[in-house]
Amino acid sequence: MIIGYARVSSVGQDHTTQIERLHAAGAEKVFQEKQSGLDRDRPELARALEFAREGDVLIITKLDRLARSAAHLHEIVELLDRKGVGFKVLDDASLDTTTRTGKLVFGILASIAEFETALRKERQMEGIARAKAEGRTGGRPKTVDEDQIRALKVDGMSVPEIVKTTGISRAAVYRALQQQE
């Protein structure tokens, strides 16, 4: 069975053209949704992946309708492959896991995605090490002068007065005062 998946990012968009193209390509069942591709929790995609059985083929019109990163794409295609389900992209004939060449292309894409992830992690670790060497730790720089808050409290100011004087939230004032204890 050929299964189609169509997605648009927002409610104002229309996926009629995608659905028509999927049906024209032989899709017998089409799952469709209006949801951001950045959202990994897409119920209709999950239903399509669950519905697919060995020997089926999942088709989409464009790659960005399915995944927003090479790693996410690889994850989906790996799941389909484990189930014995093929995958095709109508706008890119080279992305077709039902052929030897298509499987090769996906293998290359997967290797590139893995390489990119490793590079990104390496750069991140270098940045963290550099920051630690410079005495910086994670998180935002402090914007609250805790010593000033404590001094105002010692001078007899109430918390509401400190909040009004400094413009700092009640929670931040209480946090500063707790750290003194």
Score class of each variant (00 low, 15 high):
Arg120Pro: 04
His72Glu: 09
Met125Glu: 12
Ser169Met: 08
Arg53His: 15
Lys142Thr: 11
Thr61Asn: 04
Val163Ser: 04
Thr97Met: 07
Leu63Lys: 01
Gly138Leu: 07
Ser36Asp: 13
Glu75Gln: 15
His74Arg: 11
Pro43Lys: 11
Arg68Thr: 08
Leu49Ile: 15
Arg68Ser: 06
Glu181Trp: 05
Asp145Asn: 15
Glu161Arg: 12
Val30Leu: 10
Glu20Ala: 15
Gly26Glu: 00
Ile3Asn: 05
Leu22Ser: 03
Ile108Val: 14
Glu28Asn: 05
Phe115Asn: 13
Glu78Cys: 12
Lys103Val: 06
Gln124Ile: 13
Ala46Val: 09
Lys103Arg: 15
Glu161His: 03
Asp92Gly: 01
Asp147Cys: 00
Ile19Pro: 00
Lys62Cys: 01
Gly102Thr: 11
Val154Trp: 01
Leu38His: 11
Leu49Arg: 14
Lys132Gly: 02
Ile112Ser: 04
Thr137Phe: 03
Glu116Lys: 08
Arg42His: 14
Ser69Ile: 03
Asp155Asn: 15
Ala52Glu: 09
Thr143Cys: 05
Ala25Gly: 00
Leu95Trp: 05
Arg130Ala: 13
Glu75Trp: 08
Val77Asp: 10
Lys83Thr: 09
Ile3Lys: 07
Phe115Pro: 07
His72Asp: 09
Phe115Gly: 12
Phe87Met: 08
Gln124Cys: 04
Arg7Ile: 05
Ala27Pro: 05
Lys164Gly: 07
Arg7Cys: 01
Gly84Trp: 13
Thr61Leu: 00
Arg100Cys: 00
Gly167His: 11
Ala113Arg: 11
Ala93His: 07
Thr165Asn: 08
Glu134Asn: 08
Glu78Gly: 12
Leu80Pro: 10
Thr98Leu: 07
Leu152Cys: 09
Glu114Cys: 03
Ala171Met: 09
Asp14Met: 06
Ser158Trp: 11
Val163Thr: 09
Arg42Glu: 14
Ile2Arg: 14
Leu58Arg: 08
Arg120Asp: 11
Pro141Lys: 15
Ile19Asn: 06
Thr17Met: 10
Gln32Tyr: 02
Glu146Ile: 00
Asp64Ile: 00
Gln180Arg: 10
